[in-house]
Every structure is written in C-alpha cells, then in structure tokens.
C-alpha cells in the first residue's frame, strides 16, 4: 500500500512539476533515424522451395552477406496540416542502406575475394498521427505516434567489378512498391532542459525536439494497388531510433 502511494506521489510530482514549454506555431517535423534492416530475400517462395528440396543449402542473402543487417539511414519530413487533438501530417521520407559481402566460387561455392553488395533507397509517402496531447496538456514528456503509407524501394546489386550485376539477361537493379506501417514512442527532450528548449525555439525556430524509437513494418512486396509479382523480398519488421525536430 505504501509503495502504491509512493508511486502515485512520484507520478504526480513528475507530471505536475514539469516545466511549461513554448507553444509557438508549428509547421512540420524533421526526423533523422537509423535502424538495423534485414531484407527477407531468402524468404521468397522459390528460394524457400529450393532450400526445402535440397537444391540449395542456404539462401542467397545468407550466402553472400552472412545474414548481416543493413544499417538503414532515413530522413523524413512531416508537413503538419492538422493540430487539435494530436497532430496529423503528410510525410516524405528518403533512406539509404548498403551491405557488402563476398561472391562465391561457382565451382565449389567457397568464398572468393570478389565483393558484392546490395544497396537500397526506400522512398516513402506516409500519413503520420502524433498523439502529443499528453505532452501539451499535462506535460508528460512522451508522444506516441503511428505512421502508414506507400513505399517505393529502389535497389541495386553490384558484382565484383563494382558494376550492376547481371545474370542471364536479368539486371540486378529495380524498384518495389509496397506498404509501410510504423508505431513509435518519442521522448520530449525539452523536458530535460526547458530553458535550452525555449532558446532553441527563439533562436532556431525549433519548438520541440525528441528522441524516439519506432517499430517499422516495411513491406515493399506485400499485396497493394501497385504490387508486382515475383519481386525480390525486401520487406522487414525492425526497430529504428532517431531524433526529431518540430518547428
């Protein structure tokens, strides 16, 4: 009982003693984020069947890249067009990631000195809802958010000479359409130093800054109005982390 009372007391202090933040007009948010992205190339049906039948021991991604993750960097701009009970934005996002590995000798499938790579550029058009009511009305420094929209992910595979790979007339580059859905939680950094936050607003026009964690379901292969059959599976569910600046 006493522990419960102490917890309620601590929460009250946390909520009601929080500093008052500047509340100047807001037009958008810029996000910078990094995440460990693992394209599910080897989960493609044809490849899974080949492994199941024993004609391949491992998938091509595991063979070439030893199941390494891609460090995906993304830059997102959210244009806020509705601010009342939370904020609603339209967002454009561009990203870049690459992974390097070694090609395998055709004769015995052992690793060679030739480098091969996969590079991806996910482009996104998203709708974003940020539930910032908690932070604005009650000064709780947490902002949950959700995102959803279209993804077009460009990709390119290079061979040992650094050129775009090709095989039997098929070129190792392309673009996949798909959907994306994200949920995340942002921590309002203003809460750590309200004076500095006010200075940033006055001097730089940055109303609020956030550190956030986001769980993304990026599925460029999933069925959608633009879906194309037999595309390389670049979808993945992964976490990314970053900084956001609301201005």
């Amino acid at each position: 009982m006493s522990r419960a009372l102490a917890a309620v007391f601590a929460a009250s202090v946390f909520v009601f003693s929080a500093p008052a933040w500047a509340d100047t007009p807001i037009s958008g948010v810029i996000e910078l984020k990094l995440g460990g992205y693992f394209p599910q190339v080897d989960a493609e049906t044809g490849i899974r069947n080949a492994i199941a039948s024993g004609s391949a021991s491992k998938g091509p991604y595991a063979s070439a890249f030893a199941d390494k993750h891609i460090l995906l960097f993304q830059l997102e701009y959210d244009h806020e067009f509705f601010q009342a009970f939370g904020s609603l934005s339209a967002a454009l996002s561009v990203g870049y990631g690459e992974v390097y590995g070694k090609g395998l000798f055709d004769s015995d499938s052992t690793s060679s000195s030739d480098t091969t790579s996969l590079k991806v550029w996910p482009l996104k058009l998203l709708a974003v809802y940020r539930f910032d009511v908690l932070s604005r009305r009650w000064h709780v420094p947490l902002v949950p958010f959700i995102k959803g929209g279209l993804v077009y992910e460009l990709w390119r595979i290079s061979n040992g000479a650094g050129e775009t790979a090709s095989s039997n007339g098929r070129t190792g580059e392309g673009g996949n359409w798909g959907w994306e859905g994200d949920v995340g939680l942002a921590f309002v950094l203003d809460w750590l130093d309200a004076d500095l936050a006010n200075d940033m607003d006055m001097d730089l026009g940055i109303n609020h800054s956030y550190f956030f964690a986001e769980w993304s379901d990026m599925s460029p292969i999933r069925s959608n109005p633009f879906s194309q059959p037999n595309r390389i599976r670049l979808n993945d569910k992964f976490f990314d982390f970053g900084l956001a600046f609301e201005f």
Partner: peptide, 19 residues
C-alpha cells in the same frame, strides 16, 4: 564467381530485375 544477383537468380529468385 557468383555475386549476390547470380546467387539469387540461381536459387530460384523470380525478380526479373530492371526498373
């Protein structure tokens, strides 16, 4: 030497490639 794309197509990957 089989680069990633050759490995992909050789393992039954169906993407025709190209934009």
């Amino acid at each position: 030497i089989d680069d990633f794309w050759r490995l992909y197509t050789g393992a039954g990957g169906g993407d025709p490639g190209g934009c």
